[in-house]
Structures are given as structure tokens and as C-alpha cells.
Write a protein that binds this DNA or RNA. Structure first.
Lengths: 213, 213
DNA sequence: TAGATTGTTAATCGATTAACAATC
DNA sequence: TAGATTGTTAATCGATTAACAATC
């Protein structure tokens, strides 16, 4: 018998639920009390049908008259996404992207708590970044033994990505946020979220090129 | 009659072709002369079948004996992606992400040439960023009239994203790289590449949370 | 030749859309 | 009530995988 878990929700749906939550929080701030699936759809760039299907997963209860209660739905989505506690996380790479991500974590509140930043560049080691001390990457395993982290963010040069991933997997990290352009090879149990900024830029350029019919 | 164009290749395939090209360039640098679809698949995180199907679109010609010539295939992919010339682009938002992207454009070579950076924060206006002058966002239209850009990169606060997109669309930008967490509403002719770092972080956190079976 | 791989089509899988009874 | 929307299932669409003849 398979036990249902949050993990049973696929990444595409999770991505949309995250978008819905953001929209609902925004609406709540503006004082909107109710909303229809059709309107969520417009704001989320999805179809009303898909929105309703996704919301089934959070055991929503809208009414034909008023649609969904913004507050209730917001809570239901948040509960489904299960982000009550903050997960300990580590960042590998304190370059431009690493720094941007760290600032992101400080301003918005994704449910991650950055425990340490690791760098190869020795001139950065020991300095501070957003109140997190930069450690030498050679101390990664040691650090993770005493401070386990479930999530790791990879923001280092492509050439170092796979080796770093191997070490993270060995240290029981179960979710890797991969901001490098390398497709990591990891065991199936490890989740990898690829965010390939370089590819985004190139794809944007591709479709921006109108020079051919 | 519909004229075939590069645009007919869908975003998923384009994304993989970009990955293949990167892999092939890396292999070429290492001196590898031939490669099989199976090996590309491993490096690209795809199946061999899908790799071959994608490569059909670039009119590849591998042989059963040696697979593909790395150099030939690399050129074929590059030709298909059509990235000979650099497209003029503008960046909106000179915050942490904007800066990281700008450094990316300098180090790697996506086929974009950053023409100008626009900011609302007046204290940044007039200063330099990676050799590009930061302009006041109020001069956007004026600038685009004299220096048309096909591609725009959006890296500003969520609250300003839609209005900025509207202005870009009105100024004939045809590809928007959206690094905000807002789903933009644009005419169908405009391509939008969403890269939602905030969502990536939250999804990574979701799947990192092993606390429930 | 024998064997493995390519190029290409057919089958499958999964995600999205459409449909519609139940509901307020 | 009449009408629009929800929750949910069925149909469709499209992307990936499987299959296989042709090929070297």
C-alpha cells in the first residue's frame, strides 16, 4: 500500500500552487475577500479549469455564488505546501548569483534558512554575506555532519557542479537547487530543481530573433 | 501556406537544443570527436530517443558506427538556433538579480548585447554597471525609439512588472525575459520566458521537506 | 557479415482542456 | 427560480518513449 504524501504532487502542480498562493496573499493584502477560478487563472497565466483541478489537491471549497474565500484558500494552499517550519539550507558559491539568491532569501520568505555559504575562492572565506559566514568548501562535509541540511543551493561554476552534487548527496541532502547550467546526475531519491539562467537568456534571445519568417 | 521558421520549434525543444550545444562545445574543447545519442542523453538528462528526435530538427547526420561528429553537430545545432548576430537588449532593474544577469551576459556569451539598463531608484541613475550606463526608467520609450531592442530583461520589483511589460510591448519588444514572480499579460505575438527564482526556491524547499511520508 | 546505432514512425503516457451534474 | 460557478470526470492534446527498418 502506498502512503499518500505531499511528494505525490508533481512539480508542475506545486509550481502553480506556489503561484496561486502568492496571488492570494496579494489579494488578501488588497482586501479582496472572494475570487473566482477564472480570475485566479488570468493572474496565474493558466486556465480556469486547470486552476480548479489544482485546487482540488488542497481540498478547497468554493461556492458557485462567491467563488473562493481568499483567506481560506490561501491558508489551504499554504497548508498543502506545508511550509510551516523553515528548512536548513546551504549555499555553494558566493558569486553574483549566489549573492542575489541570498538577498532573495532575506527579502522574500521562502521557507529556507541559510545555515552556511561555501566558497572555493580563499579571499572570500571568512568574510560575511548577508549575516552568513562564508566557509571554505573543504569544510562542507564536516559542517553538514554537525548541522544537517535538507536543501542545498548550487551557484558555482559549471566545472565544479557535479562534484559538489556528489558530495551533497553523500551528505544526505535531499533537494538540490541547481543554478548551474550542468544537468546533474543524482540518485532518484534526490530532487533537483534546475534553474538555468543561461538557458533562459539564450531561449529569450532565440524567440526574440524575428529576422526569419 | 505556412512558412516554416525557427519559431516553429517549441520552447521545450529549443531548451534542450541549447543544452546539447553547450555539451557539444564542452566535448569539442576536450577533444572528443564523436558521440552517440545515448551519451548525449546522459549528459543532458534526457532519453536517447528524445535526443535523436530533437536532432532531427537540426538536420543531423550521424552514422551507426561513430554516432555524431561533435564538431559537425555542434555547428548544425548552432545554425538551427541561429545565433550568429547579437540581438540588442535592454535590462530593467539594476538590483541584485539585474546585476547578476549583467555579469552573466559579460562572462558567457548568450547572443544578446545589452544596450541600456533602466532603474527607478534615482541614486543609481547615471552610474555605470558592467560598462553600461544606468538610465532613468522614464526615458525608456525615448531610448527604444532611437535604439530599438527586440529583447528585454525584467528584473525589477513585482509591483512594477506588468506596467513595465506594457510599455515594452508598446515599444515593439518581442521577447521578454521575466525574472519577476508576476505572470505577465501580453499579446500572443510577444514571447515571455519566465524564470521565477522565488518559485524555484520554494519548490526546492517543498521537495526538500522529508518530514512527512 | 554481425551488431549496434541512426532516423523516423507508431504507441504510450501524462498534462491540459472540455464537459457537465451538483450546487448555491 | 434562473444563472453562473464549483468539483470532478471524460476527452483531447502534445510530449516522450518505444519500436524498427535502414545503414554503416
Amino acid at each position: 500500500m502506498v502512503i499518500l504524501s505531499r511528494k505525490m504532487i508533481n512539480p508542475l502542480t506545486v509550481g502553480r500552487l506556489i503561484i496561486y498562493r502568492r496571488i492570494l496573499e496579494q489579494l488578501a493584502n488588497e482586501g479582496t475577500e472572494h475570487i473566482f477560478s477564472r480570475d485566479i487563472a488570468v493572474l496565474a497565466g493558466a486556465s480556469a479549469s486547470l486552476v480548479r483541478q489544482d485546487l482540488m489537491k488542497v481540498s478547497s471549497n468554493g461556492t458557485p455564488q462567491n467563488g473562493y474565500s481568499v483567506l481560506e484558500l490561501s491558508h489551504a494552499v499554504t497548508k498543502c505546501l506545508g511550509t510551516t517550519k523553515k528548512l536548513p539550507a546551504v549555499l555553494l558559491g558566493a558569486g553574483h548569483i549566489g549573492q542575489a539568491i541570498l538577498h532573495y532569501l532575506k527579502s522574500t520568505q521562502p521557507h529556507l534558512e541559510m545555515k552556511a555559504v561555501f566558497e572555493i575562492n580563499p579571499s572570500l572565506v571568512g568574510t560575511n554575506l548577508c549575516n552568513v559566514t562564508i566557509c571554505d568548501v573543504s569544510t562542507l562535509e564536516e559542517h553538514l555532519r554537525s548541522n544537517p541540511a535538507q536543501v542545498a543551493i548550487l551557484a558555482l561554476p559549471a566545472a565544479e557542479a557535479q562534484e559538489a552534487a556528489d558530495r551533497l548527496v553523500a551528505a544526505d541532502v535531499c533537494s538540490i537547487l541547481n543554478f548551474t547550467s550542468v544537468r546533474l546526475q543524482v540518485p532518484e531519491r534526490v530532487f533537483v530543481e534546475n534553474n538555468d539562467i543561461q538557458m533562459s537568456l539564450e531561449r529569450g534571445a532565440f524567440y526574440g530573433d524575428e529576422g526569419l519568417i
